[in-house]
């Protein structure tokens, strides 16, 4: 537990929960990022304005933090381009097929006490833990 950061995790988590509650109270929408972004990509979908505004806010946050002197560290990514592409395809396809991601199911859905979202969260957590266990401890990547 060398890098455990409970205080910043609790503050950040509280803000994520607050954002989900604000979005519902103000706009009546669920703060599920895969659903919000998928709706922007959908050809036939309307109701795109609020979605684009939310994602713009998401991308603006680290830029504002940077101006305030808190530069966002460069994200640690795998060296292999093919792993990045395969992972991206799986995350995109899987979140849309399953109806949500870490935010839509993991936070909003679990907070609504939806059995679908509790099941989805348990499944994607276990699948991710198994993937890391296999890649790191079996293949030693």
């Amino acid at each position: 537990m060398a890098h455990f950061t409970p205080i910043s995790a609790a503050i950040g988590g509280g803000l994520i929960g607050l954002s989900a509650v604000m979005l519902m109270l103000l706009t009546g929408r669920i703060a599920g990022i895969s659903g919000i972004f998928g709706g922007v990509l959908d050809f036939s979908g309307d109701d795109k304005g609020w979605r684009i505004a939310f994602i713009a806010g998401l991308i603006l946050a680290p830029l504002i933090a940077g101006v305030m002197g808190h530069q966002m560290p460069s994200p640690g990514m795998p060296a292999s381009w093919s792993i990045i592409i395969i992972a991206g395809l799986l995350v995109g396809f899987g979140t849309r097929l399953g109806g949500g991601c870490t935010s839509g199911h993991g936070i909003c859905g679990v907070a609504r006490l939806s059995s679908r979202s509790v099941a989805a969260t348990a499944i994607f957590m276990l699948a991710a833990i198994a993937t890391v266990a296999i890649t790191r401890h079996v293949f030693g990547v």
Binding site: V91, G94, T131
Partner: peptide, 18 residues
């Protein structure tokens, strides 16, 4: 199926959509 595929992709790189 969707949650399983997403979990595998998430575990490969550590990135979810947000």
């Amino acid at each position: 199926l969707g949650a399983t595929l997403f979990g595998i992709g998430w575990g490969l790189v550590g990135l979810c959509p947000g």
